[in-house]
């Protein structure tokens, strides 16, 4: 795994490098934003750890430039807690995760691994949640290795859910994503789909969770998403 740390504080950078190295993660380091930007543009990384308060080019600006280029490298932002209101904005701008200083290295490692694994998976077009997996190119759902038979609508809804495991999506948002392909779907139809999908996933370790005010999401019983 090839990682890049963009951090201006030398002490933090040094010890972070060492800590991650202890866990088998090799991290390269840039001190200022401009340098980092050039490097990211020129080379490929599996993930980037980005501090917001950088000299030359601010972290938020760097993120914008990356995403404008179409660079989808997973990116986790580390920063002091004060930048809270920007947190939401940054996630919308394209950061994949957000970790407040001070943090434990375990936490950082865990998140990095999850980020990379997901992105790799998504890069290959493979999504999974527990025993359920989805192959995008083949448009095939597998539950415990067995092909899952779904109606067209069920397939569409489950596709949406598996592409965002653990992240709730509301009925309306599902509808918005489907309405282009299926003009007759309504909110009630989504509910019916959920009911049917739940039935199909009944005896597996995968469940569809509904949370009021948040929406639907897939969850594997062992807690890993």
């Amino acid at each position: 795994m090839r990682l890049l740390l963009v951090e201006d504080d030398k002490d933090l950078a040094l010890w972070l490098q060492r800590s991650l190295q202890q866990r088998g993660l090799f991290v390269e380091w840039e001190e200022d934003g401009m340098q980092a930007d050039r490097r990211i543009a020129a080379e490929t990384f599996d993930a980037i750890i980005l501090d917001l308060n950088l000299p030359m080019l601010g972290g938020a600006r760097l993120l914008d430039k990356m995403r404008d280029r179409g660079d989808a490298t997973p990116l986790i932002i580390i920063t002091a807690k004060d930048d809270l209101p920007d947190r939401i904005a940054l996630l919308h701008a394209g950061a994949d995760d957000f970790l407040a200083k001070p943090f434990s290295v375990e936490e950082l490692e865990a998140r990095l691994v999850a980020l990379v694994r997901r992105s790799r998976g998504h890069g290959r077009g493979v999504y999974d949640c527990g025993s359920l997996s989805f192959n995008q190119s083949q448009q095939l759902f597998l539950l415990n290795g067995t092909r899952l038979a779904l109606s067209a609508r069920e397939h569409a809804v489950l596709t949406i859910l598996i592409q965002r495991v653990g992240e709730p999506i509301s009925k309306q948002q599902i509808l918005d994503r489907l309405i282009s392909s299926d003009e007759e779907m309504q909110l009630e139809t989504v509910e019916v789909m959920m009911y049917r999908l739940r039935k199909r996933l009944e005896n597996s370790d995968v469940r569809i969770i509904t949370l009021r005010g948040l929406g639907y999401f897939l969850e594997a019983l062992d807690g890993q998403g």
Binding site: E167, L211, G213, G223
Partner: peptide
């Protein structure tokens, strides 16, 4: 809620918004 959902789901705790 979205930000803390992962923490909550670790304990299998439901988080509802009315």
């Amino acid at each position: 809620a979205r930000m803390r959902l992962a923490d909550a789901r670790r304990q299998r705790v439901d988080l509802d918004l009315d």
